[in-house]
Nucleic acid binder design. Structure first.
Lengths: 329, 329
DNA sequence: CTCACAATATGAAACGTTACATATTCTGTA
DNA sequence: TACAGAATATGTAACGTTTCATATTGTGAG
C-alpha cells in the first residue's frame, strides 16, 4: 500500500467515495446533494482525514475568511482587551485574525497594510497613528478610534461626551477649579475631543477651565513641574483634574501625593479608559470607561457587513463614569 | 481602455514588460535574471501596482509564511507580552501571525488546532491546557510552558530553578517559616515545579516547609481563610511566602494587610512572573521574573529552525529575582 | 411503454502561482 | 566562419479548489 506523504485532496476523497470531484466540492460547500452521495462523501472524508485546503479555495474564490488586525502595541491593557474582543468576534463569524503590531511607527503601519493586502485578507481593522495612511478603497477597512475621511468607516468611543461626563461629575462633586491634562503624540486623534468636551461644559457655564497638552516625547517631568508650580501655600490651584487616560491619572495621583496632597480629599482625579488591575479586577482610578467589547464587536460588524455601500462614516459608542477611589464617588 | 476590476496578475506584468511568465516569477523569487529583464519587470510591476498573490503561491509551494499562535487569554499581561514577542519575532522573519484565543477551554484548543491546520500554516506555537491535545506530527509545533512528550518541543522558564531561587532569597532575608501557595487548575503544568523547587531547598537543609495547592474554581476565599486561621496572637505562622504567580502574591499581600500585618516587615512575599504596572512600569511585588521576550524568541527560533530533526524536547530559560517591595530586598 | 422534463451528478476549465524541460541567445575557440 | 557549451528565457504542467456547461438519472403523464 502506498504511503501518503501529503495531505489527502478532494480527488482522493472522490475516488474513495466513488463519486465525482464536483460532488465532493458540493458537500463541503453545503450545496444540495443526494442524501446517499453526501453520506458516502462524508464517510470517505472522515476515513482519509480530509481537510479542505483553504489556500486552493482562497485562490479560486478570492475570499479567505481572514481579517487583519493592526494595533500599535498589544502589551497595553486597553489594546489587548480590544484584540481579545476583535479576535473573538471574528472567530465567532468563522474568520481568523492576522495580528500585526506596529509599535506606533507610521512606516510600519503602512508596511503592515501592504503586507496584509498581499495576503489577500478579506478586510482590515486598524488602530493606527499615521495620518496619511494609504488605504486601498477596494479592501474593506474599519478604523478604530481614528477618523480618516467619510469613505473610511470609523468606530470610536464618544470621546467628547466622555469629557462632558467627566466635567459634569466633577461639578457635581463640588469642584470649582478644573484642569484638563493630556499627554500624547502630536498627531491629532479622537482623544483630543476628550478635552474639548470637558472644557465645553465649563465654558457653557461661564467658568474658567485650565487645560494643558503635553507631548509624550518630553516624558512626565513637565507635568510634575507644572503641578508643583501650582502649589500655593499647601494648596493646589486645581481641585478637579481630568486626565486624558488612566495611565496619566495614576501618575498624577502619585505626583499629588508626593506634593503632600490627599486624593480625593484635596483634589479629585478622573481618568479615561476604564482599565482594571490584572489581579484584583479593581479600577486604578475613577474613570470614564470605554466599552471595549462593544468597540470590538462593532468594528467586526461593520467590516463584515454584507452591504457595505452605505456604512456610517463614524460610529460613536457611549461611555460611562465609574468611581474608582480618586473622587468623592 | 478596459477597466481592470481585479488585481493584476503575473500574466499582466509579463505582458506589460514583454517577457515570459516564468521570468516574472523569477524576479519575485530572487532567482538570477538578466539585469535588463529584471528592470523591465520591476518597472512594469510598479506601473500596474502588482502584488504577488500569496494564496496562489501557497497553493503551489505548500509554504505560507504564516504561523498560528494559540493562547488562552490575551488579556492577561503575561500572555499579551508573550503574544507581542512572538508576533514581532515572527514578523522579523517574514512570517505573519494568526492569533487564536481559547479561553482556557480544552475543546476550543483542539478546535483551534484543527482550524489552523486547515489554513495551512507552516507551524503552531501553543500555550494550552488540554492534556491530551492531538498534535499532528507532520506540522511543526512548539509548546510554551507545557511539556507533552519528547516529540513535541517545549520551551519554558526554569520553574524549578525559580522556586529554588525564591527559597534561597527568603532564607537569605532571614525567613525561617516558609510557605508555598498555589492556585490553579487541576491539570498539572510546568508551574507546579515552582513549588517543588521551593520545597526542595528547605528539605535539603532539613527545614520544614508548608505548601498548599488550591484549585481556582474555589476562588481565593480558602486562601484567605487559611491565612486567617494561621494567625497566632497577632503573629502569622509564616514569615516567607512564595506564591505561584504575581496575581496571587498581590492578593496575599492584601489579605495579610487586612489581618493587620505589615509587608515586608512581618512577612515577606515573593511572586512569580515579573509583571509590571502598565502606567508606572513598577513591579507589583518582589518576584521571580520570567524572560518573556526570550521565551517568545526561542519558540519562534525552534519553530522555524531549518533542521527540525533533532530539536531539544525541552528548553528551560533562566529566571531572575527582582525585589519589588514585598521583601526586605 | 415512451417521452419530455426536472433534478442532479459529472468532468473540464480556470484561479495565479512555481518548477521544470525545452528553446534560444551569447561567448569563446578551432 | 562554424560550432560546442554555458547561460538564460520560454512556455507548459501542475497545485487543490470552484463553477459551469454537459451528461445522466429519475419521475410522471400520455
Amino acid at each position: 500500500m502506498k504511503q501518503r506523504d501529503s495531505a489527502p485532496t478532494m480527488k482522493d476523497v472522490a475516488r474513495e467515495a466513488g463519486v465525482a470531484l464536483g460532488t465532493v466540492s458540493k458537500v463541503f460547500n453545503d450545496i444540495p446533494v443526494g442524501e446517499d452521495y453526501r453520506k458516502r462523501v462524508e464517510e470517505a472524508a472522515r476515513r482519509l482525514g480530509y481537510q479542505v485546503n483553504s489556500y486552493a479555495r482562497g485562490l479560486k474564490t478570492n475570499r479567505t475568511c481572514s481579517a487583519a488586525l493592526i494595533l500599535p502595541d498589544i502589551t497595553h491593557p486597553f489594546f489587548s482587551a480590544l484584540a481579545q474582543g476583535v479576535c473573538s468576534a471574528l472567530a465567532a463569524r468563522g474568520y481568523r485574525t492576522i495580528l500585526s503590531i506596529t509599535a506606533y511607527d507610521p512606516e510600519a503601519e503602512q508596511k503592515c497594510i501592504q503586507m496584509v493586502r498581499q495576503n489577500k485578507v478579506d478586510g482590515i481593522i486598524g488602530l493606527t497613528y499615521n495620518p496619511e495612511l494609504d488605504i486601498d478603497p477596494r479592501l474593506p477597512y474599519v478604523s478604530i478610534d481614528r477618523y480618516f475621511s467619510p469613505s473610511v468607516p470609523c468606530v470610536a468611543s464618544d470621546n467628547f461626551g466622555g469629557g462632558q461626563l467627566a466635567a459634569e461629575k466633577l461639578l457635581e462633586l463640588g469642584c470649582t477649579r478644573p484642569l484638563f491634562l493630556r499627554i500624547g503624540s502630536k498627531v491629532p486623534g479622537e482623544s483630543d475631543k476628550r478635552g474639548d468636551g470637558f472644557e465645553s461644559v465649563f465654558r457653557q457655564r461661564g467658568m474658567a477651565c485650565a487645560a494643558l497638552r503635553f507631548n509624550d516625547e518630553d516624558g512626565l517631568e513637565p507635568i510634575r513641574d507644572f503641578l508643583a508650580g501650582h502649589m500655593d501655600g499647601g494648596r493646589l490651584d486645581f481641585d478637579g483634574i481630568f486626565c486624558v487616560n488612566d495611565a496619566l491619572a495614576v501618575r498624577v495621583r502619585d505626583f499629588l501625593e508626593e506634593l503632600g496632597l490627599r486624593v480625593p480629599e484635596d483634589a479629585q482625579i478622573i481618568g479615561f479608559d476604564g482599565l482594571r488591575h490584572f489581579a484584583t479586577g479593581n479600577l486604578y482610578c475613577s474613570t470614564i470607561v470605554q466599552p471595549v467589547d462593544r468597540l470590538a464587536e462593532t468594528s467586526v460588524d461593520m467590516l463584515l457587513r454584507e452591504d457595505r455601500s452605505n456604512l456610517p462614516s463614524l460610529v460613536c459608542l457611549p461611555v460611562t463614569y465609574v468611581p474608582g477611589g480618586t473622587t468623592k464617588e
